[in-house]
Design a protein around this nucleic acid. Structure first.
Lengths: 323, 323
DNA sequence: GCACGTTACGTAAACGTTTACAATGCCTAT
DNA sequence: ATAGGCATTGTAAACGTTTACGTAACGTGC
């Protein structure tokens, strides 16, 4: 059997309370002599603490649950990385629960699982909650925070890029370079997509342009490929892609159709992952700081100070032409 | 306070034992009438089971720990997806622990954390264990399985592609198309890399070619970019890249150097993720089935029947030229 | 010599379940 | 009527910790 503090206590002739105090570093409550003795015995027996028991008595697990949507995009690694790193600095483990792809049932189930474990916080990445989810979360009294999704209110914790501003910045970038027929490709019909549409419209309107060209999608490569055909008859000179994958899809479809990028069509992509460097030409992007989004969301959910919006930056590569 | 079975028992006038039996579906041990009563009360109180308590008394958590190396590659999503899906079919949760990038200390720590939680199995993805890790794992008596790494022995559970065969197949593919000066780029110096080198040498030797051109790397895009320069003076006509990212790096470096792919240099990449479709030209690849590798590793570690080697396939795209 | 504080440690309850065992009531076969 | 069996429920211990509280020993200052 695995040794417990009971075994250590017996072996070293003290009570389990003392063993516990030494092992959990309640400094000032034990002598150096007993500490040394207990530590030696613990090491000899190969003792390893039972986190489950600790969590039961403390009624809190030192664990953050990350519920993540399996969107066909690829920034999750960076977000997870940021979350993991920051969490471990705060002494928290991370447990990841997949919620499928926009699957209400799985999503709900994931939240329940997190709640059953008495986690110290719940992070929801790329998740659009329904009202049922939201009530469940609120009633649980476990802190939760949306990651890379802004629900449009400050009543619910979240950390993301400012989608409205980001879309406006991207649109302005193209306007500055002389484009006036600008498409928006692959946005979703939820919060993120709507916010980007607002920013996009606002930037155009500020230049006196009322005409907008919006095509919805699901952030995937396939989505981008298919969407190109829909833009062609509309005579846009530039397209803003809702993700790197969408941009890559548009780009490849354009190449197959014999349309030169950026000579005949400019492309700019929202995300800015490694994908942008890999394509030919490399994709100019509105780069989000996913690592920071992840890291800050941990701070947020643990009650530390953290921003709701994480700064983005525009990285010029080779896919936009000045008209 | 969150309601417990005690509250339900009080409310419905039965003992906690009965409540527990109903709630954990010990069919045949309770009447339909009490079942209905208890279920109703549980629902009304908004009862949610405390997994921690269950795990403590059962001495086992229905959770698989996945320890994963933050390699600068991008197949992890697929592996995680496969693991998550299969695990949840078997009623297991998944907790992911990052082990940094070839960081012995973090790696060790991750194993200890998994052990502290009495998980039902430990999966180690893209991890090269040191002897200390291995003893720790063996002595714990918790089943563990390496994922996408084959230690060269069947004494340790693992699920991966057959690297030796895979490299031979890839090399043969190039040989068949008339290439005789073939490079191997970006392999590591551990098990995976060594196995691929063996397969590569074997295939060449079978064609009477003794000359080999091997450059080591870390599977990253940057690694690929840098390596191209080292291959140029060696007059290879084709390069096998150890990962899609390495291939993309080689490709872009080649394009910058004015070397046409595949006309002047053929490229074939080991992995076959979405990256291959995104580049121009698209990368011909030896495609690994990462989803299956993940799924099977769950079966393996849970004692179900599962293969050690998961089949691969060669997918021709546009980066290899017949000489 | 006494009151008091401090240090070091032990006792025992608590966390929320599961489950072995015992107990009860009822039915059936004799 | 009685023994045995079954269905249903209850009692209580156990899982491995933490921690409030109590206590003993030992100064220290008066």
């Amino acid at each position: 059997m695995k040794p417990t503090i009971k075994d250590i206590a017996a072996e070293s002739g003290v009570s389990i309370a003392t063993v516990s105090r030494v092992l959990s570093h309640k400094t000032g409550t034990y002598s150096e002599k007993t500490q040394a003795k207990i530590l030696a015995v613990a090491k000899r027996l190969g003792y390893r603490k039972n986190s489950t028991a600790v969590e039961l008595v403390k009624k809190k697990a030192a664990v953050i649950a990350l519920i993540i949507n399996a969107t066909p995009t690829n920034f999750s690694t960076q977000i997870i990385d940021g979350i993991q790193r920051r969490a471990s600095e705060l002494g928290q483990g991370v447990i990841i629960l997949y919620a499928g792809n926009r699957n209400a049932e799985l999503q709900h189930q994931a939240i329940v699982t997190a709640l059953e474990r008495a986690v110290s916080g719940i992070l929801l990445a790329a998740i659009e909650p329904d009202t049922e989810d939201l009530t469940l979360l609120k009633e649980s009294h476990v802190p939760f925070c949306f990651v890379s999704v802004y629900l449009g209110t400050d009543k619910v914790l979240s950390v993301s890029s400012d989608n409205e501003k980001l879309a406006a910045t991207t649109t302005d970038y193209l306007l500055d370079r002389g484009h006036t027929h600008i498409g928006l490709a692959g946005v979703d019909t939820y919060h993120t997509g709507s916010q980007r549409i607002i920013g996009y419209r606002r930037a155009l309107a500020a230049h006196g342009i009322q005409e907008t060209t919006i095509k919805y999608g699901d952030y995937s490569y396939e989505s981008g490929r298919q969407l190109l055909a829909e833009f062609l008859p509309l005579k846009v000179t530039a397209i803003i892609a809702a993700s790197d994958m969408v941009a890559a899809g548009l780009l490849n479809a354009a190449q197959e159709a014999g349309i030169a990028v950026p000579e005949q069509l400019s492309l700019i992509s929202i995300d800015g992952t490694d994908i942008c460097r890999i394509t030919t030409p490399a994709l100019t992007s509105l780069t989000q700081d996913f690592y920071q989004i992840g890291a800050q969301s941990v701070d947020r959910v643990m009650g530390e100070k953290a921003a709701t919006f994480v700064p983005v930056k525009l990285v010029a590569r080779g896919s936009v032409k000045r008209l």
